[in-house]
């Protein structure tokens, strides 16, 4: 399916290309270019054109992952209520494919840490993160999970990035639901542009881009 020589169509809004775009350009010194199908082969090719898309595995996989993120229902404090509000009717997050808040970490791929993380809760949070299967992402929602927020004292962890790797920080106290949706969209951007791991076979090129599913740290 991969066609490295085919020109990338800059006008295409999706990562997909049609068969027509994937076909190599005709050689310049052809004498006559017939219009319309002349042989059986051409006729078959024209029929197939209507129903085949060419793309890369990576684009499809990233597209699927980005548009169907399943968050873990992990509301801790006040930010949880704004997170519930994005599931509500006014700020509808199911437009982004993320309305199924899973109860179990085994079925979720996004952990939105919504609220302040106390020192008693920190080991629980780490355990939940470990229980989530790859690929997984973390959004630190609100000031408290990004950096400790309003509370700088003995009881609150100063930023959830001390224990889990965070992909997107959404500031606010609490962030408006639009802000959280913007954070989810930024995460979608990140997923769409990341390289994927296809198993134990290492890539030859050194990656400079964020890697999804590496479970770093």
């Amino acid at each position: 399916m991969t066609d490295p020589q085919a020109p990338q169509n800059p006008k295409s809004p999706t990562p997909f290309r049609t068969l027509a775009q994937a076909r190599p350009a005709a050689p310049a010194n052809d004498l006559v270019l017939p219009s319309g199908p002349v042989s059986d082969e051409d006729r078959i090719r024209e029929e197939l054109e209507k129903g085949i898309l060419f793309t890369t595995v990576e684009s499809v996989v990233n597209w699927a992952r980005a548009n169907a993120i399943w968050p873990l229902g992990f509301g801790l404090a006040c930010c949880a209520i704004e997170m519930m509000a994005i599931a509500g009717p006014r700020f509808d997050v199911s437009r982004f494919g993320a309305e199924v808040f899973r109860g179990s970490p085994r079925q979720a791929d996004l952990m939105i840490v919504a609220g302040r993380v106390s020192i008693k809760m920190a080991p629980v949070l780490r355990q939940l993160y470990d229980q989530m299967p790859d690929p997984k992402w973390v959004i630190a929602m609100g000031a408290c999970s990004s950096c400790g927020g309003v509370f700088n004292n003995y009881a609150i962890l100063q930023g959830v990035d001390k224990i889990v790797p965070v992909d997107v920080y959404v500031p606010g106290c609490p962030p408006r639901p639009e802000g959280l949706i913007h954070g989810i969209m930024k995460l979608q951007e990140k997923i769409l542009s990341s390289k994927i791991e296809l198993g134990p076979i290492p890539r030859k090129k050194k990656r400079a881009q964020p890697v999804t599913g590496s479970g770093a740290a």
């Binding site: 990140k190 542009s193 400079a208 964020p210």
Partner: peptide, 11 residues
């Protein structure tokens, strides 16, 4: 280089 590529949304 780590800045994500400018990706267009489907819409």
């Amino acid at each position: 280089k780590l800045a994500p590529k400018k990706v267009r949304y489907r819409a």
